[in-house]
Structures are given as structure tokens and as C-alpha cells.
């Protein structure tokens, strides 16, 4: 056991949907500041794995230790811990009845007792960073897909999370909007944010990831640093997968 406890430690995680084993014993560790990419064919369980991490999906068995606390313990207040785990969805899921600014300030104000001025100041700072300060008063329906996803990212950041979970953040975007979202994510990685990213953007994974996991049939079949992972895959399934997507 290392001196430093990893931020997230997953042990033998299993998830069964009526008769289907979506996760079949997944174990891994994610350290602070680490950027982990999860790739694999569709139906491999990678999204389920990510959604289990903050228990949007309830695992059937196993353990997830976040900051030393087992999230699957019945007595754990999951809402508390979710505040420290930001999540970005494929379909953005911005709140359509609120302005961009309100989308970002409602959670810190209601959950962390941050004052309105404070929350708005922080939100504006983040909007500035992603180049959307002039859209603060707009409603989500007035934004492009890339803008929506950038807002979704900074909305999660407003809670000052310790880890950011990305569930195929660019899969629902027009090709010309993918770049702006990846750029924001790349900057986040540079600032040492702990990130778990499920994606099909292999080029981006090569560039940003510290470690890449390959999942198929609910298991991690291979993992390693991107240079090794992409140049020298060992698992047959991974070789077949990479030959198709690259």
C-alpha cells in the first residue's frame, strides 16, 4: 500500500441490470491530479462504470472508496460526496428554466451556503475563463452545443469538486464544436484537476491522459500510459478496437 491514499479506489465493482452484467468486477485506483481516460466499444460498461462512481447508478456489489469513505456504505450521505464530484453529461443537461448564471450559482448557494454575490463573482470568473462571460444572462436554448457543454463544465466547477467525471462530453456535439470543449478540458487537466473521462476522442486521450483504461464486457482488459497503450497494445480485443477507431 502506497503512502498516499488514492482519491478513488474501486474494488471488484459489479453492476447487474436484470440479467445483464454491465460491470463484471472492476478494480482500479485514481490518484489526486490524475487524468484517467476510459475507452472501449459501446456496451462495454464504461459509462456505467463512470455513473457508478457517484452512484447515479447503484452498483450491485463491490466497494468505491472516495477520500477513504466507502460510498456504497448504506449510512453514507451520498449527496454530501456528490458535491465533491462534478459530472458532465453527453447531453449537457443544463436547466432550461434558468439563465446560465443561475445554472451555475444555484447549487453553491443552496448547498454550500455561499452568498449570492460570492457565487456570482465566482461564476463570472469561470465564465470568463471559458470565454462565455457575455452569455451569463442567456438561457440554455440560446446557446450552441459547444457553449452549452462549456457552461455545463463550469457549472460543475462552481462546486469546487475534487474530481470531475466526464461522460462522453463531445459525443452529442457538431464536429466543429468539439475543439472548444476539448480545449477547456485540456486546460483543466493542466491545472491538476483529477479527471475521469469516458470518450471516443482517441487523439485527445493520447495528448492529455496520464493513464488509459480499455473496457470491454464490463471489465478492464488493459490499462497503461497513453504512449504505451496506443503504440503497443497487448490485448487482442484492444488491438481490434484500436484498428477500427484510429
Amino acid at each position: 500500500m502506497s503512502v498516499k491514499e488514492p482519491l478513488i479506489r474501486v474494488e471488484d465493482l459489479k453492476k447487474e441490470f436484470t440479467g445483464v452484467h454491465a460491470l463484471n468486477g472492476v478494480s482500479t485506483k485514481i490518484c489526486r491530479g490524475e487524468v484517467v481516460f476510459v475507452v472501449g466499444p459501446s456496451g462495454s460498461g464504461k459509462s456505467t462504470f463512470l455513473r457508478c462512481l457517484n452512484r447515479l447508478e447503484d452498483p450491485t456489489s463491490g466497494h468505491i472508496y472516495f477520500d477513504g469513505v466507502d460510498l456504497l456504505d448504506k449510512k453514507v450521505n451520498i449527496n454530501r460526496h456528490r458535491q465533491k464530484m462534478g459530472m458532465v453529461f453527453q447531453h449537457f443537461n443544463l436547466f432550461p428554466h434558468m439563465t446560465v448564471l443561475r445554472n451555475m450559482t444555484i447549487a453553491p448557494m443552496k448547498l454550500q451556503g455561499v452568498s449570492r454575490e460570492e457565487a456570482e463573482k465566482e461564476a463570472m470568473k469561470l465564465l470568463e475563463r471559458v470565454g462565455l462571460a457575455d452569455r451569463a444572462g442567456a438561457y440554455p436554448s440560446q446557446l450552441s452545443g459547444g457553449q452549452k457543454q462549456r457552461v455545463a463544465i463550469v457549472r460543475a466547477l462552481c462546486m469546487k469538486p475534487e474530481v470531475m467525471l466526464f461522460d462522453e462530453p463531445t459525443s452529442a456535439l457538431d464536429p466543429e464544436m468539439v475543439g472548444e470543449v476539448l480545449q477547456v478540458m485540456g486546460e483543466l487537466a493542466k491545472e491538476n484537476m483529477t479527471m475521469v473521462v469516458v470518450t471516443h476522442e482517441m487523439g485527445f486521450a493520447k495528448e492529455v491522459a496520464h493513464r488509459v483504461l480499455f473496457m470491454a464486457e464490463g471489465q478492464i482488459l488493459e490499462e497503461g500510459p497513453p504512449a504505451e497503450f496506443f503504440a503497443n497494445p497487448k490485448n487482442e480485443r484492444l488491438k481490434a478496437f484500436l484498428s477500427k477507431v484510429i
Binding site: R82, K110, R155, M159
Partner: peptide, 21 residues
């Protein structure tokens, strides 16, 4: 859409808060 619900929960709102807000 259920995504609205998940977005609320992922931010840390409990079930009732997600409903209300």
C-alpha cells in the same frame, strides 16, 4: 427528461431539492 434529474443529483441536491428547484 431524466437527465435533468441526474444533473440535479450529480450536483449534490437530494431528491426533494431536485424536485423543488
Amino acid at each position: 427528461d431524466n437527465g435533468q434529474f441526474e444533473a440535479g443529483r450529480s450536483l449534490g441536491f437530494n431528491y426533494v431539492q431536485t424536485m423543488i428547484f
